[in-house]
């Protein structure tokens, strides 16, 4: 551990901590840049690949999302500039999410496999395309209302 803990959070008496306006704008450009990259991938690049490649794009989106979350929490919410005790009281409970996400997605995938294995009618119903065109705009709405 370092000898000193540096903190910009000075609330006591006369000491006035100030936010670095340059750092705020730098964070803004990083967030905007990541969002733009995500959108370009989502709109133009990912649709060109077959659907079973989607998992790799999703992993990429997760990395970008985690990066954005880090910048919002660390810079905008100022957590990076608090003392270590404060950072840990937030970061350690948040680790529960790793188990939470892993366990429940695993559970969902397992349920899908069980249904597909033991309920052939479900599998057939959920993998046979329907004739009707998807309703993308108000034009198709009437049609889909009639079908329902």
């Amino acid at each position: 551990m370092e000898n000193v803990e540096v903190t910009t959070n000075a609330h006591h008496g006369e000491e006035k901590g100030s936010f670095d306006t340059k750092a705020i704008w730098r964070t803004f450009w990083i967030l905007l840049g990541i969002t733009c990259i995500e959108l370009v991938i989502g709109m133009f690049i990912a649709p060109r690949f077959p659907h079973d490649m989607k998992i790799w794009f999703n992993i990429l989106y997760i990395i970008f999302t985690a990066a954005k979350a880090f910048y919002i929490i660390a810079e905008f919410m100022h957590l990076r500039h608090e003392i270590k005790n404060m950072i840990m009281t937030i970061a350690v409970p948040a680790m529960l999410f790793l188990w939470f996400i892993g366990a429940f997605l695993w559970e969902g995938a397992s349920f899908k496999n069980l249904k597909n294995t033991y309920d052939p009618a479900y599998k057939e119903r959920s993998t046979t395309p329907v004739k009707q065109q998807p309703a993308h705009d108000e034009h198709d709405t009437q049609k889909s209302r009639e079908l329902h």
Binding site: M1, E5, A10, E15, G17, H81, N85
Partner: peptide, 11 residues
């Protein structure tokens, strides 16, 4: 303006 907290601060 960052202010520095000494390492031996008993939190």
């Amino acid at each position: 303006m960052a202010h520095v907290v000494p390492a031996n601060q008993k939190w």
